[in-house]
């Protein structure tokens, strides 16, 4: 295998992994924007999406598109219910209280999944076969193209939603200044509900499309959340484009690092990049410095 095709292979791997991180990071952003908190149960939404999809398509034999829709819908409902039952009832909660509630949610979802599906690892058949595509000596799985394509659609839909719909604009207003938005007649609590539902939906989509590549088990969400969180911070919390860019950067750094230095330092390399960037530009690559100063956290 020539060096050129090796590098190309590293890039392909980086892009595959990076797109996964980016998708998870998107979910973090949406909730952060409307509530100012980090939802530490985001990884569990991803896991639930993947697991429900696997059950629907392999146990109940539903066709892929139908299974996809139902899984996303179910996880969205779980996200909304979580907000209604755990976040909504609190009056004037502090940011830290909310974050700890999401930790509890994460443990609950993980435990529930363990009871439902057991501790085994499950796999979802790839959407369009597992025959790799050869490009200049390197290979890429058709599933990676699905991930990139669906991620593109999600980003496009999110952009349209935030720019052209009433609800989207209201959520954006909450992101800029919650109190002002409240004074302008936007029901912030409803926006919080929306944001949980939306980020659960995005998490579910991420879980479904990565399941054929990464396999799924009840415990898979946590590490994805850590990496996704790194991407969200690196890209500048709240910036969707930043999240995607940072996801790719981390993924590609990891795979190049593993390829040229040592696979033992793979995770360390990504974290060092994160630390260096935050040291130089604390608001993240595409974060807004002034805006980040206005936030509590």
């Amino acid at each position: 295998m020539s060096l050129g095709s090796q590098i190309l292979q590293y890039l392909f791997t980086g892009i595959t992994v990076g797109s996964i991180y980016g998708m998870v990071a998107l979910g973090f952003n949406i909730i952060y924007n409307s509530t100012g908190i980090i939802n530490l149960a985001q990884g569990e939404f991803v896991m639930l999406g993947g697991m429900i999809m696997i059950s629907l398509t392999t146990t109940f034999k539903l066709p892929l598109p139908l299974g996809f829709l139902i899984s996303v819908l179910l996880v969205t409902m779980i996200g909304a219910a979580f907000e209604r039952l755990a976040i909504h009832p609190l009056k004037n909660p502090s940011v830290i209280t909310l974050i700890i509630i999401t930790v509890a949610g994460s443990i609950l979802f993980k435990g529930g999944a363990m009871f439902l599906w057991g501790k085994g690892t499950f796999t979802l058949p790839a959407f369009s076969g597992e025959k790799p595509i050869f490009i200049l000596g390197a290979t890429i799985l058709p599933q990676t193209l699905w991930i990139l394509g669906i991620m593109g659609i999600v980003v496009l839909l999110l952009t349209l939603f935030f720019s052209f719909t009433q609800a989207g604009k209201a959520m954006k207003a909450c992101a800029v200044n919650r109190e002002a938005a409240n004074l302008m007649g936007i029901n912030v609590k409803v926006m919080v509900l929306f944001s949980f539902a939306l980020s659960a939906a995005i998490g579910a989509v991420a879980g479904i499309i990565i399941a054929p590549i990464s396999l799924m088990d009840y415990n898979r969400g946590t590490m994805l959340a850590v990496k996704g969180f790194c991407a969200a911070v690196l890209g500048g919390l709240g910036s969707n484009l930043g999240a995607i860019t940072a996801g790719f950067i981390i993924g590609i750094m990891e795979s190049l690092g593993a390829g040229f230095i040592s696979s033992g330092y793979k995770d360390a390399i990504a974290l060092v990049v994160l630390l260096v960037v935050l040291f130089v530009k604390p608001s993240g690559i595409l974060g807004n410095k002034e805006r980040s100063q206005l936030k509590k956290f």
């Binding site: 292979q9 590293y10 994805l224 696979s263 793979k266």
Partner: peptide
Amino acid sequence: PKDTDMTVQLTK
């Protein structure tokens, strides 16, 4: 133990 892709190591 939580990695999702090992193509890099295998490419090497």
